[in-house]
Write a protein that binds this DNA or RNA. Structure first.
Lengths: 208, 208, 208, 208
DNA sequence: GATGAATGAGTATTCATTCAT
DNA sequence: GATGAATGAATACTCATTCAT
């Protein structure tokens, strides 16, 4: 679909360079945190001149934001593609859990960075970014909520709670397991079968 | 005159000042993030001289750590006290949810700060603190896991998953709801009855 | 001559305290150098309150100057007393060498301090002190020059150079030997017989 | 165009800038002493930005050390070259006195600085530098001692004292005269003929 | 268009000095 | 008179950003 390679050679070259800078920045930021990486350092490691970085990004913050947006796009794509497959609701949720797990595993350095820098109010300067990301997050919750709603409507799921609440719950539980595993893999082995997480929802806890 | 004269007046005064500084620091840190607040600024806003701050805390970092430790202690106390009441397992979980909700509501600025600064790799300087807090977190998870384990043993709960997993799940779901509510209270009204959260666990989702 | 103990008790007490402060300051200054000792530190170690120090001395610099003046007075006294004995010129010079050696050995910490801090232009703030000390030094040179002059007049010494030059020479040579010994006693053992230094002057170097 | 184009223009320019900074620093340090000069001040007076200074020198201390080393090298060279000429011992000593005098006259500001800062215990931070300089000084004394030893062996000099002692003596006497002249040129005119200093050694003082 | 040398505002921390008790 | 808590000016150093080449 994309016509990336229809771009004039110059433009394509530019894009490639931009990606290289972002990759280096991701590397450094996720190793040391935003505040402990200097623009100098990014320039050196990516083998561009400082001035060149500033051709691509207005400032350090802009570079960071671009990085986060780019990766969030990628993640969203993966996850959305997973739940857009034509399947029943249960399968969709399973796909969702699997996709999120995979994204997480494949992008550990970034996840670390993101958790470190962008949660909460740390960067009021980056409020713009935050707002945008929050919106996206809410949207993705809506997509999951839709699955629950549809499942409830189809009477595949019991109507135990608001579908949006259910989406929040599922999303947060996956995150929690992944984070624990990230912190201390030996202590918190990630469930070998990601579906195990779903079971907690699917099977009620209380004895009837 | 005062009733709280267990300590000599001088000492009490000192403590009060320390608390004032910590309160101001919390305020500023949670508004702007650790790196974007200068010691100067804390001094000015708390109406002490810079030198005075340094009488109380060795470092900017030390001040931050003291702040976090102090509050975490407080939170832990509240929550532990809640679940140590002699009640059945279901009641204990309800108490837990309520206690956490209350702590969260009462300490929004700090929660913001904590989420912003203490997760991930951002603060390699603060690794020591992080480790300590992680350990505490894991310990608190164990306490909740114990409740689930006991409930399962008593056949009050179905044995649908490892108790520790259940603890992780519950804890993370509460956090998630609270965070959403923190971000956008209108969009995400926190369930009026905190027990609603528990219901998601208690009632199975799947139709039999 | 002095009527120290005629002073009212109050005054005597004051003087004793002053001496105590100066002694502590000497100790600290000579261990760490003027700039690396805080007034706080002097106060603590001498067991006075900071405010009390400031009753005795206008400021840190004033304290330092008083210290140096006091000790220089003492040294000058010792040395002057030595050369004022009724002796012939050769004996006077010997007494001078011995007295200087003794003063040096007995006051190593101060000598170190003095060399570190007061030579040259380090403290333009302390210019006042420096000027005063220089004058004293020149005066002491004159006293030595007088001995040489008298010795030349008495034909006890050859008239090989201006007496003042001879004084400069003798004084500097003693200092040089003492300094070397101070730096590295093993490498530069101080001549066991201080008179050896004089011999270099007394015996001409060149073969006739 | 320039004749000194062994280095690429860029490098030459750099070196010139470095020298300019060092010259300004020397100026300021010798007027006010190391501790009383701020990096800010050096930057302003040398008309570079603070950051530029830090491109050339890691620290304020590093700047100071570079300054001292640079100049000591220069001095040592001059003096060593003077005594390495093929001459008899007497001439060598004369050359030594003359070379030292010249170096001193040409580098008054530095001499002032050096005397102020590098002696004694003031700079425990600068211990490394101090040690290095002391070693150099001792080495230079050995070179002079060799001249005396050779002169004694050749029976050009009487064997009145250990050659190393003689070296110490000569060196310190020159320094003393130079220092007096530095302090108060009118009161202490430096001997018009530097050889006058040597005469004090060559001619015995005592009448036979 | 690319470069990277130069810039200088910004920040944590120390310590001489004051003054209310 | 003595005290020492409180003060805040001063300073070394970093690093995002610019702009002359």
């Amino acid at each position: 679909m994309a016509a990336d390679n229809k771009l004039p050679r110059r433009e394509r070259e530019k894009l490639r360079q931009r990606q290289e800078i972002l990759a280096t920045a991701l590397d450094l930021f996720s190793q040391k945190g935003y505040h402990n990486v200097s623009v100098q350092e990014i320039a050196e490691k990516s083998e561009f001149a400082i001035g060149t970085l500033y051709k691509f990004f207005q400032n350090k913050e802009d570079l960071y934001k671009a990085l986060v947006r780019e990766l969030c796009d990628k993640f969203e794509d993966s996850i959305m593609r997973a739940i857009e497959q034509p399947q029943d609701e249960v399968e969709k949720l399973r796909s969702y859990v699997r996709a999120k797990t995979e994204v997480f595993h494949r992008n550990l350095p970034f996840i670390r960075l993101y958790l470190a820098e962008s949660r909460g109010a740390s960067f009021n300067l980056k409020a713009g970014l935050d707002d945008e990301l929050r919106k996206r997050y809410y949207n993705s919750l809506e997509s999951i909520a839709d699955i629950f709603a549809s499942g409830i409507k189809n009477q595949r799921f019991k109507n135990i709670a608001d579908p949006y609440y259910l989406a929040v719950t599922l999303s947060s539980v996956i995150d929690a397991f992944l984070l624990l595993w990230l912190d201390a893999p030996e202590r918190h082995p990630y469930p070998e079968d990601p579906d195990a997480i779903l079971d907690i929802f699917f099977k009620g806890l209380l004895e009837p």
